[in-house]
């Protein structure tokens, strides 16, 4: 059997800000989802108890506070995401839907994932993934807006309610807002499954360091990616190609 010792190139892609945001999001969403389920269907305390001596683990007050704190941290972490977006081209993941080439790539990648094509051209940031992030961000924004609408309508005359309260009008009623918030939470879970799978798949099947990229910020590709021009100028690209090629499996530790 012939072993392929192919030369691979390292591409620095994701800023630390994006990476910190990503993992904050992972932790927050885990907490938000779990506590969210408990809020909609609370575990019940036993009989013959007094509120003062209630089991702290059953305390909806605690569960709700965790939910709220996780939500605030999540929203705050967005600042990192935005900062990364500003300073680093690699963080800019919005799909280039205005370019015909993007759509061709989409079709190509989709064909591959539908197992109709043996492989797809190499990408730094896969167009299908980028589309899915649009979906994720939309869902996250709906959650943020519906969530704050519910949270801040405690005082419907307050400043916060003016900022987010209008969301309720869009969906009809506050009862419906609860529903939407809950449905979207499940939809985000479905995204998570697909996302984790695709990352693992890309890592194992194509050995592109998908998973490690969220720690290191770099991806390692065998062939020059189609979309390399999006993240670097011609010169810097040259600089990269001048570098000594790394071998697959080797990780760059530079942050």
């Amino acid at each position: 059997m012939i072993m392929h010792e192919e030369p691979r190139k390292v591409y620095y892609l994701f800023s630390p800000f994006l990476r910190i945001f990503h993992w904050t999001m992972v932790i927050c969403i885990s907490f938000l989802f779990t506590t969210g389920l408990l809020i909609t269907k609370p575990a019940s305390g036993g009989v013959s108890m007094e509120p003062t001596f209630g089991n702290i683990l059953l305390s909806l007050d605690l569960i709700r506070n965790i939910h709220f704190i996780a939500a605030f941290i999540f929203v705050a972490a967005f600042i990192l995401r935005i900062y990364g977006f500003v300073i680093n081209k690699g963080d800019r993941l919005f799909p280039r839907v205005w370019k015909a080439e993007f759509w061709q790539s989409m079709i190509e990648v989709s064909m591959h994932y539908m197992l109709l094509k043996p492989s797809h051209r190499p990408y730094l940031r896969n167009p299908l993934a980028r589309m899915s992030y649009v979906g994720l961000y939309s869902m996250v924004f709906i959650e943020i807006f519906t969530g704050f609408a519910m949270y801040l309508m405690v005082n419907p005359n307050g400043f916060g309610a003016k900022f987010f309260g209008w969301t309720i009008g869009i969906f009809g009623s506050e009862f419906m807002i609860h529903l939407i918030h809950h449905y979207i939470a499940w939809a985000i879970m479905l995204f998570v499954i697909g996302h984790v799978y695709m990352a693992i798949r890309a890592d194992f099947m194509e050995r592109e360091g998908e998973i490690s990229s969220m720690f290191s910020g770099v991806k390692i590709l065998e062939h020059e990616p189609v979309d390399v021009g999006e993240i670097m100028d011609k010169e810097s690209s040259d600089t990269f190609s001048d570098r000594k090629p790394l071998h697959a499996g080797q990780q760059e530790t530079k942050m």
């Binding site: 305390g45 013959s48 509120p51 209630g54 909806l60």
Partner: peptide
């Protein structure tokens, strides 16, 4: 509610 003490059915202990 805050303590997690709920009536589960009508006319139950809760």
């Amino acid at each position: 509610f805050d303590t997690g003490m709920f009536a589960e059915n009508f006319d139950d202990a809760g």
